[in-house]
Simulated assay, not measured.
Amino acid sequence: MGSMARKVSLTGIKPTGEPHLGNYIGAILPALQLADNYESLYFIADYHALTTIRDRDLLRHYTRSVAATWLAAGLDPDRTTFYRQSDLPEVFELSWVLSCLTGKGLMNRAHAYKAARDRNREAGKTDLDAGVNVGLFNYPVLMAVDILIMEADVVPVGRDQVQHVEYAADIAGAFNAVYGDRFRFKVPTAVIPDEGSAHTLPGVDGRKMSKSYGNTIPLFVPDANLRKLIRRIPTDSVPVEEPKDPDSAAVFTLLERFGTPESVAETRQRLLAGGMGWGEVKAQLTDALIAQFAPLRERYETLMAQGSELDDLLAHGADKARKQTRLVLERVRDAIGIG
């Protein structure tokens, strides 16, 4: 895989919640577009989710849900390689090897670990590591292995995730410095999607849509629940007959992204002229979302059904991925003098 003429792109998706509109715009669509120019790999980082999820049934559900979402959104398992992290045992053996070459000081500076310590400091706790598990601390090593074992050239990430790719490059460099005469890891680079709507999609409270804020609009929520969620989006109290500023309202920002250009332009004019209420805009947004995602939801629900082709598709992807991971681990084992 690493020797192919086209460069390799790797995208990891952590199954820690129901996929929502922000994921679709900010992560799924940009990552799927990379398949046009790269040998593309997509994996579900189910072992990464163990740092926070303790419910076995929930983890299983989220893993299947994420897989079904990406397939429904247009991921082509024949054109790309799509697999579960947990189906690649080589990842976890290599994780130990590379953790033995990774400085603890590097891990001390990882954003997630520092944020956990900062929260404990602000809460007045004397033990700044309270509630921090070793999985969270070692998380960047496992993520580095996900990238390096597939010999990825590029990794699309949000700006707040760039450090993980930088760590992968540092850890590759540490291995190459010791064993590079026998095997060298490819050093990856981060690709950051264009700034814009992907990073400013508002949630139902007007803030950036995020699971951490609890303000998301799930992709495949039933129509009646979707209408309730959209109605919750805050708007000003300007009377219906008065002119309104479309750009000041989260509901219009969402309509701009999901409505047709013609309907969005007409709604903008009607709001500026007065005589249109926000309730009507919310109804338009709901209808636009239902129209756009109904076909995807149908595919999603088919895949989520017991006995669907979902597990076979993931097993097929794992077989393709393991051709790569077995080869790399074999070469690593030879380089370090094991096996």
Rank of each mutant, 00 (worst) to 15 (best):
G2T: 10
G2I: 15
S3G: 10
R6L: 10
K7L: 09
I13P: 04
G17N: 09
H20Q: 10
N23F: 01
A27G: 04
P30M: 08
A31E: 06
A35P: 06
A35F: 11
Y42G: 02
F43I: 04
D46Y: 07
T52M: 12
R54D: 07
R60W: 06
T63L: 11
S65E: 04
S65D: 09
L71D: 02
A73F: 06
G74I: 06
P77N: 10
D78A: 14
D78Y: 07
S86Y: 01
S86K: 03
P89V: 03
E90I: 02
V91T: 06
E93D: 07
L94C: 06
S95V: 12
L106Y: 07
M107Y: 07
N108Q: 12
A110W: 01
A110K: 00
A116N: 00
D118Y: 13
R119I: 01
N120F: 00
R121I: 07
A123K: 13
K125G: 04
T126F: 13
G131Y: 14
V134W: 12
V134F: 14
V134N: 05
G135S: 10
P140L: 00
V141L: 04
L142T: 00
L148N: 00
M150D: 05
R159I: 03
R159M: 09
V162M: 15
V165L: 14
V165M: 15
A169K: 09
G173K: 10
A177S: 13
A177N: 07
Y179R: 12
T189I: 12
S197H: 06
A198Y: 04
T200E: 15
P202W: 00
G203P: 02
R207F: 12
R207T: 07
M209F: 12
S212C: 12
Y213M: 08
G214N: 14
G214Y: 13
G214I: 07
G214K: 08
N215M: 13
T216L: 08
I217E: 01
P218A: 05
P218Q: 09
A224N: 08
K228W: 05
R231H: 09
D236V: 10
D236P: 08
S237V: 06
P243L: 02
K244Y: 03
K244N: 02
P246Q: 15
D247A: 05
A249G: 08
V251E: 03
F252L: 04
L254Q: 00
P261M: 14
S263T: 09
R268G: 01
L271A: 02
L272C: 08
A273S: 09
W278G: 02
V281C: 07
Q284L: 15
L296K: 11
Y300V: 00
Y300I: 00
T302I: 12
A305F: 12
Q306P: 05
Q306I: 13
Q306M: 13
S308L: 13
E309K: 11
E309W: 07
E309T: 12
L310M: 04
H316N: 13
G317S: 07
A318V: 08
K323C: 05
L327G: 04
L329K: 08
R331Q: 14
V332S: 01
A335C: 09
